[in-house]
Simulated assay, not measured.
Amino acid sequence: MKGTYDKAFENVIRLRIMSILMVNEQFDFNSFKEILEVTDGNLASHLRNLENSAYIRVEKSFAGRKPLTNYSATEEGKKAFQSHLEFLENLIKENKT
């Protein structure tokens, strides 16, 4: 079967985070929190998991005096996510027959 199953993406929140980062160059913490409708702690945990897997990059800065945390997908993360999606697509195709 083509593609590779990746446990990093088996959680729906992490799957959605990567989906957002595949179509956006970067995304900030508060925007993630709003669109995913999760708590700060829950979101931070999932983002840390993806960061520890080297699938996302974190950039901290300030907008005036307000801290701003932006996330972007790494090349490794994009490749791993594409492979995971390919695995899922093939799994669905196999089960249709």
Score class of each variant (00 low, 15 high):
Met1Pro: 08
Met1Asp: 11
Met1Leu: 05
Met1Asn: 10
Met1His: 11
Thr4Ala: 05
Thr4Asn: 07
Asp6Arg: 09
Asp6Met: 13
Asp6Val: 15
Lys7Tyr: 14
Lys7Gln: 13
Lys7Arg: 09
Ala8Phe: 15
Ala8Trp: 13
Phe9Val: 13
Phe9Arg: 11
Phe9Gln: 10
Glu10Gln: 12
Glu10Ile: 10
Asn11Asp: 15
Asn11Glu: 15
Val12Arg: 07
Arg14Glu: 08
Arg14Cys: 12
Leu15Asn: 09
Arg16Val: 06
Met18Gln: 12
Ser19His: 12
Leu21Pro: 00
Leu21Phe: 04
Met22Pro: 03
Met22Ile: 05
Val23Glu: 15
Asn24Phe: 10
Glu25Leu: 12
Glu25Asn: 15
Phe27Leu: 11
Asp28Gly: 02
Asp28Met: 03
Phe29Asp: 06
Asn30Lys: 07
Ser31Ile: 06
Ser31Phe: 08
Phe32Asp: 07
Phe32Val: 11
Phe32Arg: 09
Lys33Ala: 04
Lys33Val: 00
Lys33Leu: 09
Lys33Trp: 02
Glu34Val: 11
Glu34Asp: 14
Ile35Glu: 13
Glu37Leu: 14
Glu37Tyr: 09
Glu37Ser: 14
Val38Asp: 01
Gly41Glu: 13
Asn42Val: 07
Leu43Asp: 05
Leu43Thr: 03
Ala44Glu: 04
Ala44Tyr: 03
Ser45Met: 14
Ser45Thr: 15
Ser45Asp: 14
Ser45Asn: 13
His46Ile: 03
Leu47Asp: 08
Leu47Tyr: 07
Arg48Gly: 04
Leu50Met: 04
Leu50Thr: 04
Glu51Leu: 14
Glu51Pro: 03
Glu51Gln: 15
Asn52Tyr: 04
Asn52Ile: 02
Asn52Glu: 09
Ser53Val: 00
Ser53Gly: 02
Ala54Cys: 00
Ala54Ser: 03
Tyr55Arg: 01
Arg57His: 01
Arg57Gly: 03
Arg57Met: 04
Val58Tyr: 01
Val58Lys: 14
Glu59Leu: 09
Glu59Thr: 10
Glu59Gly: 01
Lys60Tyr: 04
Ser61Leu: 04
Ser61Pro: 00
Ala63Tyr: 09
Gly64Trp: 05
Arg65Val: 13
Arg65Leu: 14
Lys66Phe: 03
Lys66His: 01
Lys66Arg: 12
Pro67Glu: 12
Pro67Tyr: 09
Pro67Asp: 08
Pro67Cys: 07
Thr69Asp: 01
Thr69Ser: 08
Asn70Phe: 05
Asn70Trp: 05
Ser72Leu: 03
Ser72Cys: 11
Thr74Gly: 10
Thr74Arg: 06
Thr74Pro: 09
Glu75Trp: 08
Glu76Gln: 13
Glu76Val: 02
Glu76Pro: 00
Glu76Trp: 02
Gly77Phe: 03
Gly77Arg: 06
Lys78Asn: 08
Lys78Phe: 00
Lys79Glu: 15
Lys79Cys: 05
Lys79Pro: 01
Lys79His: 03
Ala80Asn: 04
Ala80Tyr: 02
Phe81Gln: 06
Phe81Thr: 01
Phe81Ala: 08
Phe81Cys: 05
His84Ser: 02
His84Lys: 01
Leu85Arg: 07
Leu85Val: 01
Leu85Asn: 10
Glu86Phe: 01
Glu86Tyr: 01
Leu88Cys: 05
Glu89Ser: 09
Glu89Asn: 13
Ile92Gln: 11
Lys93Leu: 13
Glu94Thr: 09
Glu94Ala: 14
Glu94Phe: 07
Glu94Tyr: 09
Asn95Val: 06
Asn95Pro: 02
Asn95Cys: 06
Lys96Arg: 15
Lys96Ile: 13
Thr97Pro: 10
